Amino acid sequence: MLKLESVKVAYGAIQAVKGVSLEVRKGEVVTIIGANGAGKSTLLKSICGLEPVTEGRILIDGKDATNVPAHQRVGLGVAMSPEGRGVFADQTVRENLMLGAYSRRKDASAIEAAIEREFRRFPRLRERQDQLSGTLSGGEQQMLAIARALMSEPRLLLLDEPSLGLAPLIIKDIFNAIRQLRQSGLTILLVEQMAKQALGVADRAYVLETGHITLEGSGRELLDDPKVKAAYLGTH
């Protein structure tokens, strides 16, 4: 579904991503863990076209998408729930969802069906559907950000720090939703600092450090890896 070949991304003279190669197979949940500043969010932005790649290639479903504009990557089946949620604060919950379906705007009945599907997935959004998104709690905004990304019917969902700043009970709800999406067959690339939860839901995982992949393996292998335990799980 996704393949990165020696991808580099720079901000001026600063090299944020330094030749990353990875792959995400159809139906997998793949997790990227790493410390703040490792380049995780930059890497996701490059995959959806929000940051230009200076070297290397991005293949989506076998097609070279390296220079495809971000709005056209939605048509290739890619959607992202961004770090910090990024909801449109002055729009209602329902309007945010409709904006997520912009690429399908000519099919009103399909959009309504998709909104209903997301309300079933996140019942709290149904209760808040006419409320301005800026007045929602952090957890509700995160649910909305994921639901909005799903409105475009993606085949590859990018999740950037979905647990950031949330209470433990809400984090549990978010990871339950990720498990349900996995069971539905959706392909997911997850960037997450809650390493234990992220590795627990992952088929495979990568460790990104200062722009480089330093470890890779199954979620279980990295959970049991002494280096990962020491650096990210708080145990030796």
Rank of each mutant, 00 (worst) to 15 (best):
A10V: 08
K40D: 10
K227T: 14
V29F: 06
L144M: 04
D130A: 06
L166P: 06
Q131E: 13
A35I: 13
L2R: 02
Q129K: 13
M98R: 15
E51R: 03
E83M: 05
G185C: 08
V9A: 11
V24R: 04
E118C: 13
S81P: 05
V93K: 09
Q183F: 12
G77C: 09
P52E: 11
I33D: 09
L22G: 04
T92V: 14
H71W: 08
Y11S: 01
R120M: 02
A89E: 10
S184Y: 05
A79E: 13
G234A: 04
L44Y: 10
L222M: 13
P168Y: 07
S6E: 15
K196G: 08
G165R: 05
S137A: 08
I58W: 09
L159Q: 01
A65T: 07
I115Q: 00
A110P: 10
T135F: 15
K196I: 10
K229A: 15
M80A: 05
N36H: 01
H212E: 12
K26W: 09
A177C: 11
L166M: 10
F88A: 06
S6N: 15
G100Y: 02
E95F: 14
G12E: 03
R120C: 06
F122G: 00
G84N: 03
R85T: 07
C48I: 09
H71V: 02
A231F: 11
M1L: 03
P168I: 07
M194I: 12
Q91L: 15
T187G: 00
T31V: 13
T210W: 11
R73F: 11
R155L: 14
L156D: 02
N96G: 10
Q91C: 14
A147G: 10
I58A: 04
L189Q: 09
N67T: 07
R57F: 04
G12N: 01
Q91T: 07
S81D: 08
E161C: 05
I111V: 15
G39A: 05
E221N: 02
E23S: 10
G37P: 07
A145S: 15
D225W: 11
M151I: 13
G185Q: 03
T92I: 12
I146V: 11
R117A: 09
Q197S: 08
D64G: 07
K8A: 05
E221G: 07
G27S: 05
G165A: 02
Y206T: 05
V191M: 05
L158R: 06
P168A: 03
L50W: 13
L169R: 10
R57Q: 09
A38I: 09
I171C: 01
K227Y: 09
V29W: 02
A198G: 00
T214G: 09
I174F: 07
L59G: 04
L150S: 04
G84E: 12
M80T: 04
I58S: 03
G217A: 11
